[in-house]
Amino acid sequence: MPLLEVSGLSKRYRRGDTLVSAVDDVSFTIAAAETLALVGPSGSGKSTIARLVTRLIEPDAGTILFEGTDLRGLKPSALRAMRGRLQIVFQNPLAALNPRATVGRVIDDPLKIHTGFSRGERRSRVASLLERVRLDPALASRPIHEISGGQRQRVAIARALASSPTLIVLDEAVSALDVSVRAEILQLLKRIQRETRVAYLFITHDLGVVRAAADRVAILDGGKIVESGIATEVVSNPQSAIGKALVAAAPRLPRG
């Protein structure tokens, strides 16, 4: 049984008087400890899929089976409990964390919600999570608005890891970072995957990232999946027009 099985997922938005299809009958699966990359140009529905899968917005049609449970049929309290195992990291690290909160509180929140740990145990968990994303545990008392974008993205990853998820949706999670920080974060994500067997749904427009991090890839265009397969094969020999265009546009990077 796959960890995540999405089928027939659709979402339309109202733009003026017309309905625009953002995601149109999309189906895919992710196995445990696997990385699936969703690639596509902007406006292809990538981020909408990220938010649909994590149930931040309502789909119009389709099923989302996560660990065998249909997320659409869950009551709000059951969905909140489920969220600990299905996490998301957003694109813009400057907007994704409450600027008034401290680093420690941001990581402590999911621990408080999803674990029964005492305050002291949680504090040591926060410290070890910060170490896991290669940040100084002393950072815990600093407010979010005082740390850099790269540090914030590490904090966001630590927060996503806090509730021991089996799947993390990375919604353009490295796109807003500069190149050197991006490589570091990609390495960090791969190491975490080896250690915890977490699966990633890696949403990106960057084929370099796909080559470096993904097992399989699905290419989106206009809300539909137009091509999918093993990441290295699709990237080296794309079949669809949009796939060819993306490969042609991608900067040549050494294989990661």
Binding site: A81, P99, H114
Partner: peptide
């Protein structure tokens, strides 16, 4: 509409807590 509010929902925080704390 900001991301950190979506983030608070994503970790399973109760809506009232999101409203008054975040």
């Amino acid at each position: 509409e900001r991301d950190y509010v979506a983030g608070a929902r994503a970790i399973g925080m109760h809506p009232l807590k999101i409203a008054f704390r975040e």
